[in-house]
Write a protein that binds this DNA or RNA. Structure first.
Lengths: 202, 202
DNA sequence: TGTACATCAGTGAACGCGCGTTCACTGATGTAC
DNA sequence: TGTACATCAGTGAACGCGCGTTCACTGATGTAC
C-alpha cells in the first residue's frame, strides 16, 4: 500500500515532521526561540527524544525549517494584503498595516525571523525566503512609481527600504514592548501617514 | 587604610564588580547575550566561578546591570548629539543619526537593550533607564514644535514615536543584517530625509 | 495468497557536557583595645 | 605599636539538572518471488 501524502495515521506516526514543526512553533510562542529544546519538542509531539533525528539532521536543521516556514507565512500575508487593492498606493499602505499586524499576531515568529544570530543558514534558504517577502514590497513600490505615487527618479530599493524601516521599527517597538501602552491601531495609522507625508510642518 | 574608589589593586581583586560587567560586555559582543554564561564571565575576569555571587545575587542581576549600563551609554550618546546643535531641527536629525550610529557601533548592546524577554526587570530599573533615553528624543521633538519645525497640533509622543520607529527600524535592519550590502551612510541620510519630507511624490 | 526479506521510523538507555548555584573553607583587610 | 578579633571577598569541590547526540534495538510497513 502506498503511503498517502497527508492525513494518514497508519504509517507509524503519520507525519511526524509536520507535527514536530507545529510543536516547535507552539513552544517558541510560549518560551521564546532561545529556550526551545529538541527534547521538549519531541515530548510535545508525543515521541521519544531521539525520534526527531529521523527527520532533521540536528537542532539547527529544525530551527532553519521553522524560519523558512515563518517567512513563508509573512510573505503570504503580505501578498494577500496587496491582492486586496487595485490602487498601488492603497496596496502600499496595506502592506505596512499587514506587516505590523503580522508582527502583533505572531510575535514569536516575527522576532525569530530577524534574529540571524539564532539560526544557522549555510544553505541560504532562509535568506531566500526573506528575499521573497521583501520582493512583495519592492514590486508594490515599483507599481507606485509607475503611476506616479512615488517618485520614479528615486531608486526603488531605497524607497522600499525606507518604508520597510519605518514599519519594521514600529512593529519591533510594539512587539518588544517599550511602549505597549499605546493605542495600537491609531499609532499604526499615524506612523504610516507620517511615512507618506513627512514629519515636518507644512 | 580606606579603600580608594578606583584604580586600587590592593584590596583583593580591587573592583571585581566593574571587571565582571566589562567581561560580560565583551563576551556579549562575541557570542551574543543568549550564550552569555556566568562561569565564562568569571573566567574572563580571572576569578573563580563562585566569586561573582559576592557582587550579584544571581545571573539575572548581572544582565540587568548590563542593560542599565547599555541604556545609559545610549542616553549619553544621544545627549551629546543634541548638545552639538542649537537648531532644534538639526538636533532632531542628529538624534536619528546618533541612534543608528550607536546601533552600528554597539550591535550587541543595541540588540540586548530591546530584548525584554532576555532579562528580568522586576525592579523596573531597566525600564526607567529606557525612559531616560526616550526622554532625550521627546524633549527635542517638543523644541521642534515650539519653533514650528514640527506641527504643534500633533501629540508630541506620537511624533516622537514615529521618529523612533523609523530610526529604530533602520537600525535594526542594518544591525540584524537582512540588507547589509547597502551603502550605510547614504541609506541613513535617505531614510531620515524621507522621514522629514514624506515618501510620496509632490 | 504466502513467505522471506529489506527498509523505514520509531524506542530507551547511555554518553559527556557545561551550566547555575550552594557550601564550607581560607586568607587578606580593617578595627578595638 | 601589638595583638585579638570580625568582616569581607575570594576558592574549589560538589550538587542536580537538562541538554544534544549516539547507539543498538524493535516492530511495523512495503516488496520480490
Amino acid at each position: 500500500m502506498m503511503c498517502p501524502m497527508s492525513t494518514s495515521k497508519t504509517y507509524h506516526h503519520g507525519n511526524l515532521r509536520q507535527a514536530l514543526l507545529e510543536a516547535a512553533r507552539e513552544l517558541t510562542a510560549e518560551v521564546g526561540i532561545e529556550a526551545l529544546t529538541l527534547r521538549e519538542v519531541a515530548r510535545r509531539a508525543g515521541v521519544s527524544h531521539a525520534a526527531p533525528y529521523n527527520h532533521f539532521a540536528d537542532k539547527a536543521a529544525l530551527t532553519r525549517a521553522l524560519a523558512v516556514e515563518a517567512f513563508g507565512s509573512l510573505t503570504n500575508f503580505l501578498r494577500l494584503a496587496v491582492a486586496a487593492h487595485l490602487d498601488p498606493a492603497k496596496a502600499l499602505k496595506a502592506i505596512g498595516q499587514a506587516y505590523v499586524g503580522f508582527a502583533l499576531h505572531n510575535p514569536s515568529e516575527f522576532r525569530f525571523i530577524f534574529r540571524e544570530d539564532l539560526r544557522s543558514d549555510e544553505t541560504g534558504e532562509v535568506a531566500r525566503a526573506g528575499e521573497r517577502a521583501y520582493g512583495v514590497l519592492l514590486e508594490t513600490v515599483k507599481h507606485c512609481q509607475e503611476v506616479g505615487v512615488l517618485p520614479s527618479s528615486t531608486d526603488s530599493n531605497l524607497l522600499a527600504l525606507t518604508a520597510w524601516s519605518t514599519t519594521h521599527g514600529l512593529a519591533t517597538l510594539l512587539v518588544n514592548g517599550p511602549r505597549q501602552e499605546l493605542e495600537v491601531e491609531a499609532t499604526i495609522d499615524a506612523v504610516l501617514h507620517t511615512l507618506q507625508q513627512g514629519l515636518y510642518s507644512r
